[in-house]
């Protein structure tokens, strides 16, 4: 199945078995191993990427269904000499232990900060008309990203710091 994807602002033509997931395409065909395979069933969030600007689990996407779509991976938001605000905050606050979930956490948080600035509510919002970034809100909004080392408090500190930088 021939598919054209734009990944990190670069266009790729891939020819995949229709069973191939976007996650496997990114890692194995395009040489972008920053996106991690955890559970491969949409439960852990390690494979989180931005699909047309929105966070999704790339393990639950068939590449063939995404012809013409734009994807951003962890490789697309910063580089070792020019980290994104969130990447820098994760380093500074030690927002990881083993680091395996970190690319997914950072991609998810990148989208989450935009969702809050767009005014999207969450299940724990007292009022559906407003969006805020309290600790409880962060925990709820990031619940699709598991960290088996349980670095959650430091991950939330890192996100809070990055959101301050953004302001």
């Amino acid at each position: 199945m021939k598919t054209t994807l734009t990944v990190n602002a670069r266009e790729y033509d891939v020819d995949n078995d229709p069973r191939r997931t976007l996650l496997d395409t990114l890692r194995d065909d395009l040489g972008l191993p920053g996106t991690k395979k955890g559970c491969d069933h949409g439960q852990c969030g390690a494979c989180t990427v931005l699909l047309n600007g929105e966070r999704v689990n790339s393990c639950l996407c068939l590449t063939a269904m995404h012809d013409g779509d734009e994807i951003t991976t962890i490789e697309g938001i910063g580089s070792p000499d020019k980290l994104s605000a969130l990447q820098e905050a994760f380093v500074k606050h030690d927002g990881y232990q083993c680091g395996y979930c970190t690319p997914g956490q950072i991609m998810s948080a990148t989208a989450m900060l935009k969702e809050i600035s767009d005014g999207a509510p969450s299940y724990v919002s007292d009022d559906l008309q407003t969006a805020s970034l309290s600790d409880a809100e962060m925990a709820e909004r990031m619940s699709g990203n598991l960290c088996r080392c349980s670095a959650y408090p430091l991950i939330r500190e890192a996100i809070a710091m990055a959101s301050e930088v953004k302001k």
Partner: peptide
């Protein structure tokens, strides 16, 4: 659906129920 301004105003129960389900990544898809 959960974020639609009309749903939040008129059918807030629907917004809350959707936001109670799955994760942000899954709800986006």
């Amino acid at each position: 659906v959960a974020n639609d301004a009309r749903v939040r105003e008129g059918w807030p129960l629907l917004s809350r129920a959707i936001l109670a389900g799955a994760s942000a990544q899954i709800r986006n898809k």
